[in-house]
Simulated assay, not measured.
Amino acid sequence: MAELQFVVFKLGNEEYGVNIMQVKEIVTYKEPVKVPNTPKFIEGIINLRSQIIPIVNLKKRFNIPGESINDETRIIVMNIDSKQVGFIVDDASEVRTISEEDIENAPDIIAGIDRKYITGIGKMGERILILLDMDKLFDEKEKESLEAV
């Protein structure tokens, strides 16, 4: 059975995982520069080693309450459609290897348009990890907004 590696991060009390192959790096939180006329979940841009990176607030994108930035807050820089995008998360704590047999399809109760970017549910003992496909996170109009930033 194949094994997959995921970067684990938190939004509120929930744990999420993204394929490690999409993650470029994890950096400490840096206040983004606001950009006018962007969707509400785009916080702005940062300059990371002379590269301008758009920053997305995943809590706003997923409609999760709570806005606190603290010492645990991180930015996960990922490759999305050949563009680097940073995602603000509450904590990015570990890399986990999960066997394919411990990954189930997302339950039918998770319905609607938002289900398209949930690839499955990873089981790690008593812990549950919501696995995301970040390439499906944005629709075409939102991708254009990211390109414009």
Rank of each mutant, 00 (worst) to 15 (best):
K123P: 02
I75E: 03
K30A: 05
I52R: 09
N37L: 12
E67K: 14
I76D: 00
F41W: 10
D108E: 10
M134N: 03
G66A: 12
E147Y: 09
L137Y: 04
S82F: 10
D114C: 00
D133Q: 06
E104D: 12
L129V: 06
M124E: 14
P39D: 09
S68L: 15
I128E: 01
A111I: 03
N57P: 00
T119F: 06
K40P: 12
K40W: 06
M78V: 13
E144I: 13
I113D: 15
L132Q: 06
I80N: 04
E140Q: 15
K143Y: 11
N79C: 05
D91M: 07
G112T: 05
D135C: 06
G86K: 00
G44C: 06
G120H: 08
A92P: 03
D90G: 10
P65C: 12
I121T: 12
D90R: 05
E104I: 14
F87D: 01
I45G: 02
F87P: 00
I20E: 02
E142T: 15
L132T: 08
Y29Q: 09
I113Q: 10
E142K: 04
L58G: 08
K34H: 15
L58E: 07
Q84S: 02
M134C: 07
A92L: 05
Y117G: 03
N37W: 02
D108Q: 04
V89G: 01
E140G: 09
F41I: 11
F138D: 09
G120K: 13
M134E: 03
Q51A: 06
A111P: 00
R127I: 08
D91K: 13
I113W: 05
D114A: 13
V27N: 02
I121F: 09
K40C: 14
E31L: 07
M124V: 13
I64A: 09
K24I: 01
I80Q: 04
R115H: 05
R127L: 11
E31F: 00
E94L: 05
P39T: 07
K141F: 12
K24M: 03
L132V: 07
K136D: 08
R96T: 03
S93G: 13
F62N: 11
V35R: 03
E100T: 15
K116N: 06
I64R: 10
K40L: 14
E140D: 15
